[in-house]
């Protein structure tokens, strides 16, 4: 089977967020990482390949982005993806990302396409679902368990208040969440060395339009100072929650 993992290049999760004129993200001095959920998807794909090399022929990572995303793609190669692709495009919304991915995937034959459930920058939770609909592939979202046995997928997804086990036809788009693997895989020294020689193909984007526009950004207003209560007088806290905040 061939697996494609879609990865987004996002600011490190500890980044202090700033904007230029409130209209664009200020990327000055920002450290970039693989979107955490995409990293989990990639880790799981590699775990399956390592455990059952006969089942997985190849793991490719793909990113829609500009040249600065290449360090992140190299990191994915260091973690263990076999080859990388960058679609050279500065997407304005998730539909544009999904469209670019779909244009590439249509020409290839991947069996499993994995996406993280959302990205930590614009928090859309959109790309995987959009991609599957453009391709007319089945999709399963909120996947917390993924395995392959004798060429068949074993899937579990989270539902509100439980879990479901599913089967799917291939090709399919799997949208994964936390639980799919324990910890993201950290690249080994050997992985980092071999990543340099792995193929990173850059392809030109198709023309496409976005459906939404981000017109303005705003930082949240500073919160009022925390009201401190004496640890010897917890009753006061409960009174405040009851009488002042009116939440209990």
């Amino acid at each position: 089977m061939k697996i494609l993992v879609c990865i987004n290049n996002v600011p490190d999760t500890t980044t202090k967020i700033k904007f230029v004129n409130n209209t664009a993200f200020d990327s000055n001095g920002v450290q970039w990482i693989i979107n955490p959920w995409d990293e989990l998807a990639l880790t799981r794909a590699i775990e399956i390949k390592e455990a059952q090399p006969s089942e997985i022929e190849n793991i490719t990572v793909i990113n829609v982005g500009l040249a600065e995303a290449e360090a992140t793609i190299r990191k994915a190669l260091a973690i263990g993806a076999d080859n990388g692709i960058r679609i050279n495009y500065d997407a304005k919304d998730s539909f544009a990302v999904a469209y670019q991915l779909a244009e590439y995937i249509k020409k290839e034959n991947y069996d499993i396409i994995l996406c993280g459930i959302e990205s930590s920058d614009y928090n859309g939770a959109n790309v995987g679902g959009m991609l599957s609909e453009i391709l007319e592939f089945p999709s399963v979202s909120s996947i917390s368990h993924l395995d392959i046995k004798e060429g068949k997928l074993i899937l579990k997804r989270e539902i509100d208040g439980g879990q479901e086990t599913l089967s799917t036809q291939l090709p399919f788009v799997g949208i994964v969440q936390k639980g799919i693997t324990k910890e993201p895989k950290i690249p080994s020294m050997r992985g980092i060395m071999t990543a340099r020689t792995k193929q990173l193909l850059v392809i030109e984007a198709a023309s496409c339009e976005s459906l939404t526009d981000f017109i303005e950004f705003e930082l949240p207003k500073p919160k009022a100072a925390c009201k401190k209560i004496d640890p010897e007088n917890v009753r006061e806290l409960v009174q405040l929650l009851h009488n002042e905040a009116k939440v209990i």
Partner: peptide, 24 residues
């Protein structure tokens, strides 16, 4: 609703109807 079901269907519907989607 922005729950597991909404997250699963809304993006697909967005493509099917060529309708812009804003989540959460």
């Amino acid at each position: 609703a922005h729950n597991n079901t909404g997250k699963a269907i809304a993006p697909r519907l967005s493509v099917k109807l060529k309708a812009g989607l804003v989540t959460a």
